[in-house]
Amino acid sequence: MTKNNKVKDNNIEIATFYVEDTLMGIDIQHIQEINRHLDTTTIPGASEFVHGVINLRGEVVTVLDLHNILGLNTTEITKQSRVVIVKTNEELVGLWVDRIADVVNVKSEEIEGAPANISGVDSHFFEGVFKMESELLVILDIDKIMDVNSEAAIV
């Protein structure tokens, strides 16, 4: 849990969503907005994890396909599909998710280290897990996901 130094505040808010059937979450501080802007322009020649680009109020924002990054089956875009716009230092990046769920309040000490494998997904991109009443919330390591370019090269 040494890598969790940014989760040092006692209470963190996690925006949660489903990718396939797995509940996942990102610290809400990283999120600028969530929309259903799925009018993407596909990018020929781009890596498979890139879903396309969208026009977000004049900015061209890359939308990544979380299914592909996490090694899940890519599903169809449905009415419930959303794009989570994540702020990084350099730019805004969108993450295509299947369904949005609640914002969950989590105490940092309640976050546990991620097991090596959750529902068939490599834990490489996980920051930790949080046991909710009915299911397990996987907290994503947003830096690793943003770094998927080089990560992919290593794997």
Binding site: T41, I43, A46, V50, V53, E59, V60, N149
Partner: peptide
């Protein structure tokens, strides 16, 4: 408009623009 860092490998593209109908064109 510049393209994001995940698209730096696309050598065939120099950037993007937004057309009159709001769609992105490369």
């Amino acid at each position: 408009k510049p393209l994001g860092k995940h698209l730096k490998d696309c050598v065939c593209l120099a950037g993007a623009t937004i057309l009159g109908d709001g769609m992105v064109a490369l």
